[in-house]
Design a protein around this nucleic acid. Structure first.
Lengths: 195, 195
DNA sequence: TTTTTGTTCAACAAAATTGTTTAAATAAAT
DNA sequence: ATTTATTTAAACAATTTTGTTGAACAAAAA
């Protein structure tokens, strides 16, 4: 009974993500999305009924993917330092592709107030916090609340990329120059986090 | 000839900032603003003509204030370490009061594409970058591109606060608990940046 | 007091956005 | 060939949001 399957639904989803996460167009209308996907606005409603439902789905998928990514990276069978390097690699790549994903998530939480509690698997996070604590006892990283270690790591990773439009102006750099600066950071962040 | 002067215009401005910067309601309508300010929507249009003009003004003022704040802190007559501590203090306070101000700025740049070039005085920034470089030669901070030092500093400062809705969930903390975690960071950031 | 100026509000009009409906066209599966 | 599912299109209504206008009002100036 099902038919065509030209992946239209998936196209709409990915186009919405492109607008929200890549271009930072947080107010994109159903018309904007249809235009960007090269189709009729009716198709958007046909597959997702309402704009809110589409956004709720994009939000949920983004949270879920984030949780999955975290889980995979945090519970990898690797020595601590390599695990951190893997995390930096994975999340830097994600941020480079979707610089405004986290901004989207936060503003959605502020306005719509989604219940994200269910979306996050706290298991890997808390066991990773334990691993961080062990590493602190070994002396390779500074001793504090392990939550600070995690926060610092993601701060150094995410913030410069999501704020790049502002900081490019501050430093008078073009996009290419700033991308090179960001590229240097993978190594720099490792150095900053250890010792 | 002028009349009343009940500071209504100022009230509208500050209410808009409260919605945008404090509560992260980035899609707030003129009605939302009027409601929050306890007045008629016409008043908003009377003073600012259009929503876009109000937003443009809030944006410009925010950038200008940021530039001013930066300039003042960066060109203070203080030893380097104390200058950094002052910067941390000032900008942490600002972030605590207006957690979503930077998010507002970035999303505005993405959608409206304001020309912020004129708004920023690059003078103090570039001379502060020189000061950082000098400090690197003295050996109190690690040697890299001084831009990285600045980026790191603001990452550690701003990101945790603007992302608090997400990370509170991640760590299963309430607002008060997370505020205490943030409070610990002023000292922690200093320690991380030096040595 | 009268006039002028500036402010507030309610009502209205215009525009933008959303969501539905209907019809027609297309394409796949049975 | 028939049925089912997909896609486009156009038209429409409903809602939201915006922006304007005119009247009422208050305060200062004349």
């Amino acid at each position: 009974m099902p038919a065509k399957d030209t992946g239209t639904e998936e196209l709409i989803r990915s186009t919405a993500k492109k607008l929200f996460f890549k271009e930072g167009k947080l107010h994109a209308t159903t018309q904007d999305i249809a235009d960007a996907a090269g189709m009729n606005r009716s198709a958007v409603h046909y597959y997702f009924r309402t704009r809110d439902q589409l956004i709720a789905l994009v939000f949920a998928e983004s949270m879920q993917a984030l949780s999955l990514r975290l889980g995979k990276v945090m519970s990898a069978e690797l020595p601590f330092r390599e695990k951190i390097q893997g995390l930096i690699e994975v999340f830097t790549n994600e941020m480079m592709e979707y610089p405004f994903q986290e901004v989207f998530l936060v503003t959605e939480i502020n306005t719509a107030g989604h219940d994200l509690v269910t979306k996050i698997d706290e298991g890997p996070v808390s066991s990773f916090l334990n691993e961080i604590e062990k590493e602190m006892h070994l002396g390779t990283i500074e001793k504090t609340d392990p939550k600070h270690f995690l926060i610092n790591l993601f701060s150094l990773l995410s913030y410069p990329i999501m704020m790049s439009p502002i900081y490019r102006q501050f430093f008078g750099m073009n996009e290419h120059q700033f991308d090179e600066l960001i590229a240097e950071r993978r190594e720099l962040i490792t150095r900053t986090m250890f010792k």
